[in-house]
Design a protein around this nucleic acid. Structure first.
Lengths: 343, 343
DNA sequence: GAGCAAATCCAAAGCGCTTTGGAATTTTGA
DNA sequence: TCAAAATTCCAAAGCGCTTTGGATTTGCTC
């Protein structure tokens, strides 16, 4: 069923039917109802392609997910982020176009999306500190919004970020308050902007407490379970092992816990652990009481909000780029406790 | 830059330029080269929408991901599956359109995709035993391919599945060979087809070994870490606790391990665990030697192959639906060992 | 009931591409 | 050398929609 057939069926012109369906005022309420009724029974909806051609809008947003070329890894956070963004899109009649590409091909993909006019805008995932995509997208004139930030950047752009620095500073402060002095950091890859900021929050807290950062206590890598395990093991093997570990992801935190238990220690007593919790749907932080003390910020909510920001920006092209900083909350679970007393 | 401008620039007609770019034979090699060259320097690629309108193809595949309405959970497997499928699409010039929808809305979404002519076909995720989407898509005449199978179904359709029944039968057999008699199952939701088949393989093995299935040893639920933990705890509280547990997902297996260690037991000695491993990028099964003995089958590879099957089906509409059954391999890790002797 | 504004509708152009049916040019064969 | 065949190109129609500019009808006012 297409517009032509539908309008013939109703004995109306295509113009009128189109206007009725798109809420234009030049149509009487009676005909509008008739048209809507008919559209429903014939299961008609306008072809996205034709509509897009006629209006010049794609009614679609592109998500370009970089695939870590080293580990072929898809960020586990992305499923929930996408779910959040998807809610916003479907509420606003947009479609989501997804490209998962080896990170070295990203440039080409953005150019392609632009020149094929496939999307009205894109979401940028996983920004690194000096991210080349931001100037690129500016140059292309393709509206975009970034999940996270790029520290090194002149021109303003739209972003939504969690306050990584503050979250990790608070977590570290919290451990100091419990009496810990040797605190390890199991971080993500530190050319990623979020990881850089987290380390920054961590080291600032250390300095505040008169502690010099110890490279042996600072690991950085792709946040798998195994990475958490290996990192913790290495730290425990030190002469002056940490009594607490801060971890950038729940998944690596599970690895950290494995290392703790393997050593016959008890988490929350012998070793304290704080993790960042993205509130992933399949990785709830325990049941009723949280297992891990955690800095918590829902990545799904981030998806919802950032998508909305991008749609707003597309509809108001003049306006200055919006930005938004979300604060993580610190939830206290059973994985932290006072520092064990030295014998 | 559009076709018109490009052809004016070259002093050719739009027809010729279009043909040159699409590999039609009515164009001399010299002009073709000229055209390709120009397209490259002007960064021209045809508008997907216009092309789609003209050809009647969308050059896009839809993925409709059901969002569990109960737990608002996105299947963690989906990121890797999508990554695999995405590889296939980009190699073939297709786009991936993603909708994440509350499972009760799925029907409407498929109808929308069809009537808006937004996609050439769809991938069906997470089939349940008697899946209504299969007859619906047949009725709509929208090409589709299913990741998994629906047990209750008359008409043939394209699918790719892992041999769940066989994998879990082998896993159970393996535990029997090690002398275990009380074997627990921590399964996914059993209206999901894969989970049903897995339980089936498990019970068949039990019968083969003259053991009657014990409801107390069979849990079914959304496969989170916590679910694994809670399930294992409950089993351990039994008078006649199991000496081995088979688990449907690595994530729940981590929960099972937590319960084991909490009880002060050693996995692989006091309790054996076998998990299914989807080879998710962020959840490697240990480093060099696998931690969990596991039935292994890469879900990313499944994505690659199923996407290809769908594209083939779209290009050869006449042909009978293809199907493919992948066998999981059984990798032996440190999480299994001989059944502890009764004292 | 004439005159005018408001309400309601329509024909046709245009969005950027592919493709049909021909026209123009070059090459070939005898 | 000249007709036929092969090569190379083009104008125009059509894909399904939106939107402009205009035509027609209806409702009011006096």
């Amino acid at each position: 069923m297409n517009l032509k057939e539908l309008s013939q069926n109703l004995g109306l012109s295509q113009t009128t039917v189109s206007r009725a369906l798109n809420g234009y005022p030049e149509v009487s309420t009676a005909t509008r109802r008739r048209v809507e009724e008919a559209a429903r029974t014939f299961n008609y909806s306008p072809s996205t392609r034709a509509k897009g051609l006629a209006t010049g809008k794609a009614l679609a947003i592109g998500h370009v997910i970089p695939l870590s070329s080293k580990h072929e890894m898809v960020n586990p956070v992305f499923g929930d982020f996408i779910a959040g963004a998807g809610e916003t899109y479907s509420r606003n009649g947009y479609e989501m176009i997804l490209s998962i590409v080896p990170d070295q091909d990203e440039r080409r993909i953005y150019q392609g999306l632009k020149s094929r006019r496939a999307v009205d805008g894109v979401i940028v995932h996983g920004p690194v500190m000096d991210d080349p995509r931001i100037p690129l997208l500016h140059k292309l004139g393709l509206p975009f919004a970034v999940h996270g930030r790029a520290s090194v950047n002149e021109t303003p752009y739209a972003w939504l970020d969690m306050n990584n620095r503050n979250a990790f500073k608070r977590a570290t402060d919290f451990l100091f308050d419990l009496g810990h002095q040797r605190i390890g950091l199991v971080n993500g890859l530190e050319f990623m902007d979020f990881a850089y900021r987290r380390r920054n929050g961590y080291t600032v807290s250390l300095s505040d407490h008169g502690v010099t950062p110890d490279p042996d206590l600072m690991r950085s890598g792709e946040m798998t379970e195994d990475f958490g395990y290996v990192s913790a093991r290495q730290m425990f093997a030190l002469d002056d092992a940490p009594t607490a570990i801060i971890c950038s992801s729940m998944i690596s935190a599970l690895g950290v816990r494995r290392a703790i238990e393997e050593k016959g220690l008890v988490m929350g007593k012998d070793i304290s652990v704080i993790s960042h919790d993205d509130v992933l749907s399949y990785l709830k932080n325990g049941g009723d009481t949280p297992i891990f003390t955690a800095t918590r910020s829902s990545v799904r909510e981030a998806g919802r909000q950032l998508a909305q920001m991008l749609l707003d920006a597309i509809e108001n092209p003049g306006r200055a780029p919006q930005t938004k900083l979300l604060e993580a909350e610190l939830v206290v679970g059973t994985s932290t406790g006072p520092a064990p007393r030295k014998d």
